[in-house]
Design a protein around this nucleic acid. Structure first.
Lengths: 203, 203
DNA sequence: TAGATTGTTAATCGATTAACAATC
DNA sequence: TAGATTGTTAATCGATTAACAATC
């Protein structure tokens, strides 16, 4: 079991796109051509990518949408829930709480903040807790991800506290380059990157 | 003039990273090795990338940080200001208003919403305006970018209105796949992509 | 000078596209 | 059957890495 196929990085990125594109598909079958048109890529590339999956298409028919959806969801572990806390009680935290991350199998279980004046405020349904409860929250909810939404100057120190308490992945909204042990997963969410792309395309 | 160098896509993406990395550099010179260590890539790759620029490094010294910074900022047009409106008055809008996009040459000039009950509310310093004022705002501020922060069901229709009024680029936070003329710049900001990456790495 | 670092060319690696046989 | 569509192999293209001469 666990026939660890090697999935090329570029393919992996596109599989996420296919997964999302399928969300809005109503028909039972879809061809590589249709997927390709939607995403503005080549149909050959779609077929190549999908050939890494167990899922097989039928000539003259296309791919079974439900089957494809299921395999992609399994691949990304979307059907099992991963618990996440938000650290930093501000508008960004509020925006995150409003998003529906259940469709990618992520559940927000608490909002913490290092600023004591925010403790007790509400972010959506969550009453903001102080950092001291981290250990307790970790134990209770088996938290794996922390979305880091605090100010730049406290980012590194707070990240270190999170890691010390067993957080496995940090979703970093601070814009600060975090220096952490290599076994920790850090994913930077950098909005200015998109703006630079837009500015360049506008020229 | 305008010696349009061909910039490989992968290089372009990394130039954004170099630009950002240089923000926190205090020394007058930096070597490709130092940049590479910071970003966890190969120094050869850094030198190759930088060789596309006019900027030249000095053997035994490295690259002139100020010179490099200037050329990268010019390349991305960061020193000229591009005006942006936000469409949709919610927590995400609030989060965006709080960000400092001036460092990438983007200025928020107004917040509009299609929901009349939000008109008049404040998002940061901005009093929310109705969509009717779009034409006027466009004329007054020479708006080029719209950050689309509204609900999924109104996304396509609202995007079309924006385009009709001369918006050149849409920064799409709605999660909806927009179908727009190919001359319009659409950049999707999809937070769930990062979560899928994290979920996959956690396995 | 010796040594560190750049810049560039060649070699390798990986990703995309073209071509086409297999199949329903 | 004829034709549309998949799946795969080979060819091409692009990106990274290795190697090393040039230079300060």
């Amino acid at each position: 079991m666990g026939e660890m196929i090697h999935l090329p990085r570029a393919t992996f990125e596109r599989l996420k796109m296919y997964r999302k594109a399928l969300e809005s598909v109503k028909k039972p079958f879809i061809s590589s051509d249709e997927i390709a048109k939607f995403l503005e890529i080549n149909p050959e590339l779609v077929r190549k990518d999908l050939s890494y999956l167990k899922c097989q298409g039928k000539p003259r028919v296309g791919y079974d949408v439900e089957e494809l959806r299921k395999e992609l969801n399994d691949l990304f572990g979307v059907n099992s829930t991963t618990n996440m806390i938000i650290v930093g009680a501000n508008d960004l935290a509020r925006a995150l709480v409003n998003q529906d991350f259940s469709k990618v199998g992520v559940k927000i279980v608490a909002v913490l903040d290092i600023e004591s004046e925010n403790v007790g405020k509400f972010i959506g349904e969550f009453s903001v807790r102080e950092m001291d409860v981290l250990e307790r929250v970790m134990r209770r909810f088996n938290v794996e991800i922390a979305a880091l939404c605090i100010s730049r100057d406290k980012a590194q120190a707070t990240a270190e506290i999170l890691i010390k308490n067993g957080i496995k992945a940090i979703w970093n909204f601070t814009g600060v380059h975090l220096e952490l042990p290599s076994n920790v997963i850090v994913v930077d969410e950098d909005l200015t990157k998109s703006l630079l792309t837009i500015k360049h395309l506008l020229k």
